[in-house]
């Protein structure tokens, strides 16, 4: 006997309303393909181009707590902001990001990253310098590669000193698409 879709959905909505979830996730559509998004009571926990849900659920349970549930209702505010961003109607995100568990260096780098405005870029070395460690360009590259919340924390705005795009964990074609959306690339 399978559980009817509307009954399943009603439970997931009620669970989101109950405030008892440590993390809620959903898979949402975007111009860059499906995105896994996850939020908790302290903000956005994860955005990923990799929609292997099972792996993300395990990770969310480790980081945020075991009450992890797919709950589209709780993901709605983030979905809305992403839709506005992709529609060109939003240049900055209002939702906060939950950085629990990252190292102090990573946190400094990500806070500086968040300050790079829509439509602008910085180099890895510049970002390292802003985070207080000018020699750490390579470590900044690693931090971008492991960014838990791409798009919202705009690692796509970080490029090489010679203007090359260098790389993107979600695939270079997505970095091109995001910089094109923001008018950096034609």
């Amino acid at each position: 006997m399978s559980v009817p879709v509307d009954l399943d959905r009603r439970f997931r909505d009620a669970a989101a309303r109950s405030g008892m979830l440590d993390a809620a996730y959903d898979v949402v559509d975007s111009p860059l393909g499906p995105l896994l998004v996850a939020t908790g009571d302290r903000g956005i926990l994860r955005i990923s181009f990799d929609t292997d849900v099972e792996r993300h659920v395990e990770w969310l349970a480790r980081v945020a707590g075991r009450n992890v549930l797919r709950a589209p209702r709780q993901a709605d505010p983030l979905r809305r902001e992403l839709d506005e961003y992709f529609g060109g109607r939003r240049h900055a995100f209002d939702l906060s990001v939950d950085l629990r568990g990252v190292t102090p260096f990573t946190e400094r780098v990500l806070r500086e990253l968040a300050r790079i405005p829509f439509g602008q870029t910085a180099t890895y070395a510049e970002l390292a310098a802003r985070a207080g460690n000018p020699k750490a360009a390579r470590a900044v590259g690693m931090t971008m590669n492991r960014n838990r919340v791409p798009i919202v924390l705009p690692c796509h705005r970080v490029i090489g000193a010679d203007g090359s795009l260098v790389g993107y964990a979600g695939g270079l074609e997505r970095k091109v698409a995001l910089l094109t959306l923001e008018g950096v690339l034609l």
Partner: peptide
Amino acid sequence: IPPFETFY
């Protein structure tokens, strides 16, 4: 203990 989603 599995994540709640898995249990559900």
